[in-house]
């Protein structure tokens, strides 16, 4: 998928980005880079994404844009793009609030109209 290649290429330019992956609704790993445990990571992305979609449905909210997850061992942003969950793993010392604006800008400017 051209949009995914393009997206990964742009996201890689952000120094705080440590790894990338995309998963589909079934939790299947589609593509990625610098992720060791691809199957588990894909499952995590789909699980987080589905949780957000469930909240959206329960609470009658407008569409889910993205999810951020932070802890001692992981900093992760998960975007919903078309039918995929795209996970951006950040370096442990990075700050999500400082990076998410740049990531959102890249995702927001993604050209997926022709896909």
């Amino acid at each position: 998928m051209n949009w995914m290649d393009s997206l990964f290429h742009e996201l890689q330019t952000i120094p705080e980005v440590a790894g990338l992956a995309a998963a589909d609704d079934t939790g299947t790993y589609i593509a990625g880079m610098n992720i060791d445990d691809t199957d588990e990571f894909a499952a995590l992305l789909t699980f987080i994404g589905r949780s957000g979609l469930a909240l959206e449905e329960h609470l009658g909210l407008d569409p889910l844009v993205y999810t951020s997850l932070s802890g001692k061992k992981i900093k992760l942003i998960v975007h919903r793009i078309l039918d995929y969950f795209v996970g951006i793993r950040l370096s442990e010392k990075s700050s999500i609030s400082k990076v998410e604006g740049r990531i959102n800008s890249i995702v927001g400017n993604l050209d997926i109209e022709d896909e």
Partner: peptide, 22 residues
């Protein structure tokens, strides 16, 4: 969700779901 994410070993303290309106 949070308990399952913990099972993954991510040790997540905060999770934020960003919707368009909330």
């Amino acid at each position: 969700s949070l308990l399952n994410i913990r099972e993954y070993g991510s040790g997540a303290d905060d999770v934020i779901f960003h919707f368009e309106n909330i």
